[in-house]
């Protein structure tokens, strides 16, 4: 078990190392650099004439004239030692400050979505597989096709449209206006949970569609296994047979794809957040890309990927615990 954990943690660190290089490359990609943009932002419209010398000074001040690998090392050192992701030029403050509470909002949305996905998809898919060719089974097929075809941001738009035209309220945001600036309290938490439902439903939409199909297919496979017949031949009650044997195994592919689901949710989150006006990282990511505020963008990309890697790790460990056939001996 220990060897397994050490091996997986090592793999996680290697992956994160390569990811950080990739993120750094993306941060470096846009033409011009932080100094250009800083100078443009700071002095445009003020009538001050910025010379190349001024920009060079700014560049030197930020240490941007050093070679890329040194800047990468500095950036990484900041993250690893001080948890410092650098400076946001658009907000003229530290990246950490800009990100602030948005990180927790993002995680709240993520976990609500994951829970909703699994609570919906697993029981329904198991029911549909057991009652094959039933109306539930057929509607599942239709829903899962639609889930793959209707992109989340369109669903968000449709929900906005329906909420505005039918219910005459807006579903955007994470808080009602009166709680926006209020300090944290139980009432505010409740208000947030209410607002979380719509984004969670929108984000869970395609993840649920996919999991419905996976769980149903695995369940159908497992139902035909001899071990299920053997359990029935022992006289075990039908529901107990179903729960203990096929259903138990049909959950394994769900566990093994948690990381994939998180990836999917984070992939769709920015645009959904933009449409629904959610104060979280995805929306900030789009904004910082549009502003070319690359340190903020890089930090967010790192954080999102880090969570995916962590969830992959959690799913690996959970799967090893669930399935005795997986050897815990590393490799």
């Amino acid at each position: 078990m220990l060897r397994f954990l050490v091996h997986r943690i090592f793999g996680l660190l290697v992956t994160m190392f390569f990811v950080s290089i990739m993120v750094f490359i993306i941060m470096e990609l846009p033409p011009g650099d932080y100094a250009d943009r800083y100078a443009f932002r700071k002095f445009s419209g003020t009538g001050v004439n910025v010379t190349q010398g001024d920009i060079d000074n700014i560049r030197h001040g930020f240490g941007l004239d050093r070679p890329a690998h040194i800047r990468y090392a500095q950036w990484m050192t900041g993250i690893l030692t001080r948890f410092d992701f650098g400076e946001s030029f658009a907000y003229e403050t530290s990246v950490n400050h800009v990100i602030g509470q948005r990180l927790w909002m993002t995680l709240a949305i993520l976990y609500t979505t994951l829970i909703l996905t699994y609570v919906l998809s697993i029981p329904i898919a198991i029911y549909a597989a057991v009652n094959r060719h039933s109306s539930v089974d057929y509607s599942l097929t239709v829903v899962s096709y639609l889930g793959l075809a209707l992109p989340n941001f369109l669903l968000a738009l449709v929900m906005l449209y329906v909420s505005v035209t039918v219910f005459d309220t807006s579903v955007g945001g994470l808080f009602s206006p009166e709680y926006e600036k209020a300090p944290w309290s139980l009432v505010k938490l409740g208000d947030m949970l209410q607002h979380l439902i719509i984004p969670a439903v929108v984000l869970a939409w395609s993840a649920t569609a996919l999991q419905l199909q996976t769980v149903r297919a695995t369940m159908l496979d497992e139902l035909n296994k001899l071990s299920v017949t053997a359990a029935r031949a022992r006289g075990i009650p039908e529901w107990k047979v179903l729960m203990k044997y096929p259903a138990r195994l049909a959950v394994n592919p769900v566990v093994s794809t948690i990381g994939f689901d998180v990836n999917r949710i984070f992939s769709e989150l920015p645009i959904v957040a933009l449409v629904l006006g959610l104060p979280e990282l995805g929306e900030l990511l789009i904004q910082s890309y549009l502003d070319l505020d690359m340190y903020v963008a890089g930090a967010i990309l790192m954080m999102l990927t880090f969570f995916i890697v962590i969830m992959n790790f959690v799913s690996d460990v959970a799967l090893a615990a669930l399935d005795p056939r997986i050897k815990l001996s590393g490799v």
Partner: peptide, 19 residues
């Protein structure tokens, strides 16, 4: 392959498109 798969796709596209 593993690294490309672990980064969320659309944010990655956006990062490249922003450039």
């Amino acid at each position: 392959t593993e690294i490309v798969r672990v980064v969320p796709v659309i944010p990655l596209y956006m990062g490249l498109a922003a450039a």
